[in-house]
């Protein structure tokens, strides 16, 4: 009787889940890419030393910035000193300060009708008005909304979503929706007529047009700034309010003495971002009113666009000069805001 050799029991095949397989694949791709980076980086590190490797790693981003931001900006400045309507720089004659001279050629700077480029100055003053009221209104409303939604109110998450939702919409979609509501035969006029009121031609009256442009812009963007302020509010320690409460401070005193000072850095970010965005206002208004009635809602960026692209003569030089002026104004505004923020930090 021969004994049967003992067979070890077969191990079940190792089961790997689909998600693990996908994870492994992505890891392999990542690791492969890193291997390649390693091949490139190691000789570079040997050549320039470990301390200078930081420059090597920021180089791709710097290249992108240089090609897509710095180079167009420098080209734009160069174009502002050229004339004619040719597109390519080598075909454009150098005209020195001629575009700037025409831009600032005004008998009275406060009266656009006396300026050679009166549409630029109308756009400039319209933009200034827009920035003051849109940014002012939006920051106040965003702050109020953030303060309210920072408290434990019923349906807080729902309201946060409701206020943030318009931010997700494209400016063109926002403009088209409101145009549909506000036009002569729009939803709002249908409602007004149904309750026995007169139809209002919102886009044919300059005051109404400006009012709606500002209001719609606030509605569309407020949620984004509300969210930033809400994050700022949540970073304020609760015990500070408890201490103030024990000291007998009322809500207004707590807000003025704790919330506002501690929220100032966040508020400054909101102000800088919203001012920059307000100065650049274009797409939404272009779709909503086209700049009308007349030039009531023509803003500087629309002037630049029309001068460069929409007019048949395509005055790229003049448009570039206007954009350089706009850039300078933005730079000054941002520096002033940063300075104000720094001073408030020191205080």
């Amino acid at each position: 009787m021969t004994a049967k050799p003992r067979q070890s029991p077969a191990l079940p095949p190792e089961r790997i889940s689909l998600s693990a397989r996908i994870g492994n694949l992505f890891y392999s791709i990542y690791a492969g890419a890193m291997t390649v980076v390693g091949w490139l980086a190691e000789p570079v590190q040997r050549a320039i030393g470990a301390n200078r490797m930081a420059y090597f790693f920021v180089l791709p981003n710097l290249l992108i910035f240089g090609i897509f931001v710095l180079f167009p900006m420098l080209l734009n400045i160069y174009y502002s000193f050229t004339g004619g309507n040719n597109l390519f720089p080598q075909d454009r004659p150098f005209v020195g300060m001629q575009n700037y001279q025409r831009l600032f050629n005004c008998a009275n700077l406060l009266d656009p009708a006396t300026c050679s480029e009166d549409r630029f100055w109308r756009g400039f003053y319209n933009t200034a008005f827009f920035v003051v009221f849109q940014v002012g209104g939006m920051v106040i409303l965003a702050m109020l909304t953030a303060v309210v939604l920072n408290r434990s109110v019923r349906g807080r998450s729902f309201f946060r979503s409701v206020f943030f939702y318009p931010v997700l919409l494209s400016p063109v979609v926002v403009a088209l929706i409101w145009k549909w509501i506000l036009q002569r035969d729009g939803l709002l006029n249908a409602f007004l007529v149904s309750i026995g009121m007169e139809r209002v031609l919102f886009f044919l009256n300059a005051n109404w047009a400006v009012f709606w442009v500002i209001s719609i812009s606030i509605w569309a963007q407020m949620g984004f700034y509300m969210l930033i302020l809400l994050a700022g509010l949540q970073s304020i320690p609760k015990d500070m309010y408890e201490a103030a409460d024990m000291d007998g401070a009322n809500r207004w005193q707590s807000f003025r003495g704790i919330t506002l000072p501690l929220l100032m850095p966040t508020l400054l970010v909101v102000l800088v971002l919203s001012v920059i965005r307000a100065v650049q206002v274009f797409d939404q208004v272009w779709v909503l009113t086209g700049g009308g009635p007349g030039t009531a809602t023509v803003y500087v960026v629309q002037y630049i666009y029309e001068t460069a692209f929409a007019n048949q003569t395509r005055q790229f030089g003049m448009a570039s000069a206007a954009s350089v002026v706009l850039g300078m104004v933005l730079l000054v505004l941002t520096l002033l805001q940063l300075r104000a923020g720094r001073e408030s930090d020191i205080a």
């Binding site: 002569r184 044919l204 086209g290 009635p293 629309q302």
Partner: peptide, 11 residues
């Protein structure tokens, strides 16, 4: 009709 000329700036 005012909408045509007044209500359409720039185009």
């Amino acid at each position: 009709v005012p909408d045509v000329w007044i209500g359409s700036a720039g185009s």
